[in-house]
Amino acid sequence: MPTVAMTVNAKSVSGEVETRTLLVEFVRDQLRLTGTHVGCDTSQCGACVVHVDGRAVKSCTMLAVQCDGASVTTIEGLAANGELHPMQAAFREHHGLQCGFCTPGMIMSAVDIVNRLGVPSEETIREELEGNICRCTGYHNIVKAIGAGARVMNGGT
C-alpha cells in the first residue's frame, strides 16, 4: 500500500492508504479528525469540505494519494490557542445551525469565500453556497453568520 505524507492543520502526518482511499476517509478514519463529515458521498452536499493548498474542495471527491505533499486544513485546524475562529464564533453568535451536521463544511466554505472575496454581499454569499446543503435552517442564519464572520475576518467588528 502506498504511504502518503501531508501537512494537516499545520502538523506533518503520514499513513498507509489504499490508492482508492478518499481524502475524507484518511482524515476521519486514520487521523481520527471526525469534524469533517460525510453527508451525501456523491459530491453534492459539501459537508466534507476541507482546504487543500488553500482552496476549498470536497474531500469525498479527492483521493488521499492525490494529496501527498499537500497542505490540508480541516475544521479542527481553524481555532487557535483555544479561541474560536471568527467564522466559528459568528456561526455560534448568529445561530447559523440547527442539527449541526453541515456546519463544518459550511464554515470551511465560508472561510474560503471570505479568503477569495473579502466581505461579500448577501446575494453573493447565497450564490457561493451553491455547493453546501443544509436541510434544517433554510440558510437564513448561515448567510447572516457568514456576513458577520467576513466583517470580523476583514478587521471589522
Partner: peptide
C-alpha cells in the same frame, strides 16, 4: 459550472 468546490478542482 457546478459549485465553488467543483470549480477549484
Amino acid at each position: 459550472i457546478g459549485d465553488p468546490h467543483v470549480r477549484h478542482c
